[in-house]
Design a protein around this nucleic acid. Structure first.
Lengths: 348, 348
DNA sequence: CTGTTAGCGCTTTCAT
DNA sequence: ATGAAAGCGCTAACAG
């Protein structure tokens, strides 16, 4: 079996040829007669040698066919997040027909030193949570592709989060004079659900959350609707529990908001749930706007008004960009889904 | 940055010491005075040397701190499967506090030759779909842990699928004289939804599906309820689409089955959905039994009667078993969930 | 078409 | 406590 003592040298000795011949038989068919190659290969198989040791080859050549996928946060959390998981699916799908393999890496790590020498490069999905890691990335001299954020010099795939948020907000507001609230994801540096009042916004530069915030604010501003920081929530992770908490707080405001902009569908679904519990009618009393277009949001009633992301396709494109020779960044499309939580028809 | 030209030799030269000293500074604190070590480490950082090349170390020592997780099927499909994804979460959770990293590998591959030299071993979750790969696993001379199937000589974590299926069936049948149907997962060699009539069962030895089938049949047999092969369905993948198709066929039988045993909750949910569409009342006219205990099955009405698997915990245990010194196989628990699709009370 | 050999970067034994 | 050097297994340049 690969993985035991048998090495190219010993194999060459037993077959009475040089190591180069063995190496060529496996890696350079053109350097050998077809017949000789067949002979050698089958002899190798018989003696249980299944090809050159990949670690040694990697040291020699500097390539491994392993690609690291850096996810923004803990793997356990990312794998269960519907959007991240769709992205992983896409990457896996694109890699299936290649000989490349996928190493999952958490953006919570301080650096990539542990794995950098094993991989051919990095697909970075979303800005990693750990600032130290984020700082290291631009200095890496390997193949890098980023998604939904940018690194100097690396090709990327992005959707225009500001525009997507803006359009979804415009659609949902229509001509109404709404009382707005916003529930965002990781807007400030806190592990708790809270409003952004009196707290500095983090990562304003790259963060998709801040781009989305900008989009909502543009739509509101255009309509002379003002919103106070006390009406903008932050949750630390995109999970139901935190979303419910923020939703309860937001819908307990006086006067009750008439529209809630949510930076994920997980959050939007929580708002819908809380509203139903509180007897608030949707969409009559309250409009809800999500982001992502996850399946669950379109499967049950009322269907969410949201921004569809095509994350599987994004994953595919990211992997293709990683592999491809010509590294052109590309803007990725999105689609506004007009659901039942904020219909186009103005009910007023 | 790690990953560029700077190697231990050059670093040693610049610092006027030997390579061993540098190596010791990073890996063997005991071999150096604390003071000297500090000096060297900080000098290294200053010149941009972040430690020994991991690929070279791996070649030398034969360890990499990378663990391969072999999933039974395509990654894209596995990541989206709720049960497999929970297992991955568990493994990731357990690995978080270690310095180990996770390489995802599809059980659809022919062999592990591409990666074996890069990893410290394998966690195999479920029997890999490719028989060639399954055959290779017992010959591998690295650390291996299996889950929900067995390999000669490797420690494993299993639940007793036969017993779990048996208990869930007993609970659901009660004392009734049911007309049963079974919808199974990968029972025969077909990529289509079909019954197992006149087709040889595959992988009867290891497959969890066949163990579950045995459990259902035991419960039926004890009650002198017979079931024909024409009432046992096979679906090729645990996804909604195939499940719906099988459910429609099963509920179109004459006479209509009064109980359907489903080898996953995804299937059970599909049966519930089809039954509702056809106006079949649950649990009055039809009992439905699932397997897995996924969240979605317990969130909506009616709650599934099913077997809860604790897949996250299983993932944690598998990773712990992989890391631990004493390799004892263990049986893993399950829990029968008495839902609303097959209440205990006999309604007859 | 095949053989010889340097060296990828590191760890570790042995000698000092 | 430190230095010298062998060798992990392979690839590729070069010579024949």
């Amino acid at each position: 079996m690969s993985g035991n003592k048998l090495a190219i040298k010993e194999v060459a000795r037993r077959l009475g040829v040089s190591t180069a011949t063995i190496s060529y038989a496996f890696n350079r068919p053109d350097q050998l007669s077809e017949k000789r190659r067949k002979e050698i290969l089958s002899a190798c198989e018989k003696m249980g040698y299944f090809g050159p040791n990949k670690a040694a080859r990697s040291l020699r050549q500097g390539t491994s066919n392993i690609i690291a996928l850096i996810l923004p946060d803990e793997l356990a959390y990312m794998v269960s997040d519907p959007v991240a998981s769709e992205f992983i699916q896409g990457v896996a799908k694109a890699l299936k027909s290649t000989e490349k393999h996928l190493l999952l890496f958490s953006g919570n790590n301080d650096n990539v030193n542990e794995i950098i020498d094993f991989v051919d490069g990095f697909i970075c999905y979303g800005s990693p949570r750990n600032p130290a890691l984020l700082e290291q990335l631009p200095n890496i001299k390997k193949n890098i592709v980023t998604v939904d954020f940018d690194i100097a010099g690396a090709p990327s795939i992005n959707i225009d989060n500001e525009e997507a948020a803006y359009q979804s907000a415009c659609l949902a507001i229509g001509e109404r004079k709404e009382i707005p609230a916003i529930i965002g994801l990781r807007l400030v540096a806190s592990d708790l659900t809270c409003t952004v009042e009196n707290r500095p916004l983090i990562g304003s530069g790259y963060s998709i959350s801040h781009r989305r915030l900008d989009g909502y604010l543009r739509a509101l501003g255009q309509r002379q609707i003002s919103i106070d920081e006390s009406h903008i929530w932050h949750i630390p992770e995109n999970i139901h529990k935190y979303a419910i908490k923020a939703a309860k707080q937001a819908l307990s405001l006086t006067p009750v908001p008439t529209i809630v902009f949510c930076m994920s569908d997980i959050i939007a679904l929580a708002v819908v749930k809380v509203a139903v519990q509180m007897g608030i009618r949707i969409p009559e009393d309250l409009r809800v706007v999500g982001f992502d277009g996850i399946e669950q949001g379109q499967q049950y009633h009322p269907k969410l008004t949201t921004v569809q992301q095509f994350s599987v396709e994004k994953g595919i494109k990211a992997a293709e960009l990683f592999i491809s020779k010509d590294k052109k960044s590309q803007e990725f499309g999105f689609k506004i889904l007009s659901g039942e939580t904020a219909p186009i028809q103005d009910p007023s």
